[in-house]
Write a protein that binds this DNA or RNA. Structure first.
Lengths: 224, 224
DNA sequence: GCACGTTGTCATGAAACCGTCATATACCTG
DNA sequence: CAGGTATATGACGGTTTCATGACAACGTGC
């Protein structure tokens, strides 16, 4: 999860934004439509998303709402329109900042940094993935419960990380299929099976889970 | 910790900003100098701070750095200067947003909301709806009454959320059928049954409901 | 090629849940 | 107070949802 995603239909502007951002040291990539942007963000989430308001097909506002529904990613609108109305509407839809074209790259870059800093300032107090006696080290690919290291398969590990990234939040089977398996559609039972296997390994008594709990009708969550 | 602090030396502008913000529903107050602003923020921290860049004595940039050193409060700069240079410098100093005067109050208000939302999104990953002793965490799929967690079925949970989204407002059975069950037509008695079951779980005495009250002839509502 | 670990599919049983209905109770109107 | 209407609630069968064990397909290293 890194870099900036630029959703903008005008090829020239998109390209120049991407290049300028790369100049500023960001890993940037582009999408010409909202559909493509949303897809990319699902497949390989960027750290920040830039959105134009006037897009063919799904428009910018709808795109923002959709992004917001799926994710917490900071969203910056870059638009030619400087109407207060548009600005307010975009922010209400879930955008975090709004710049009017033509944008000064230095300003854009500074605003991206500010946004990122704000995110960290608040997110950092709980940096490690610790759930009571369950400790997850994503970079190291290690998991331990009650002091004992446990060996997980890749799928189990990814599933656990996905759940751990949203402590206490219920994730639906659909969401998990999308994020862990990158399936757009698929049999939801698959999730059950892997949750079961994961439980065998991390829960003391898998019939009364302490960490990985089922929320009937909704999905699964990992709780502290 | 509530409200907005406006640090601005021009009396007319400061006053009009404070009044405009109050109009928008914020508790706002002013400081004419950076010194006073910093003092106020120490004594009684505001939720967000607005700073002008050109201030007598300690200037805006220094004021931002000082605030940032002491506190994590979101800072919005409001300045007459629209130089990219100033914008970048202010953001680098620690500001979260930068608006150029004259500001549209609606935009300012929307940006404050966006900033606040972002703060919450990261600090409290699971926002809750609170009705006295009844706490609903939609994201977590959790409900607790008087400190005790209660287990709801999916239908009960959706029903409760629907009611909670409109605190104090009466929702007709028809509306509830449409929104919770996605039935266009259907037996309204169905709603009664589920309201009853929900009451058994969340009310102390289901014959004299404290939260989920019947409005005879109209429907049901959830009150604080 | 073989052994092994991993993965996805399927079947099964148990438990939870849902909608319907019947009955009881509360409330309003005249 | 009587009669009618709106609401509350308990019971029950059909359905959905979930946990789990078995198994075949697949890939990888030896």
């Amino acid at each position: 999860m890194t870099g900036v995603l630029v959703i903008e239909d005008d090829d020239r502007i998109r390209l120049s934004l991407v290049l300028a951002l790369e100049d500023e040291g960001y890993a940037a990539r582009g999408a010409a439509t909202a559909e493509d942007g949303l897809l990319q963000q699902r497949r390989d989430p960027a750290e920040t998303v830039l959105v134009d308001l006037m897009l063919p097909g799904i428009d910018g506002f709808e795109c923002i709402r959709q992004l917001r529904r799926e994710d917490d990613v900071p969203i910056v609108v870059v638009s030619a329109r400087d109407d207060t109305h548009d600005i307010v509407a975009a922010l209400e839809a879930g955008a975090d900042d709004y710049l009017v074209k033509p944008v000064a790259v230095k300003e854009l870059s500074a605003r991206l940094r500010a946004l990122r800093r704000r995110g960290r300032a608040l997110a950092d107090p709980v940096p490690s993935l610790v759930f009571g006696d369950l400790v997850i080290r994503p970079e190291a690919g290690e998991v331990s419960v009650r002091g004992e290291p446990v060996a997980l398969t890749r799928t189990e590990f990814r599933l656990l990380c996905e759940l751990a990234e949203h402590p206490g939040r219920v994730l639906s089977r659909q969401q998990l299929l999308r994020r862990v398996w990158e399936y757009e559609v698929g049999d939801e039972r698959l999730v059950d099976v892997h949750v079961g296997r994961l439980r065998q390994k991390i829960e003391e008594d898998s019939s009364t889970p302490r960490y990985l709990v089922t929320v009937r009708g909704l999905g699964y969550k990992l709780q502290r």
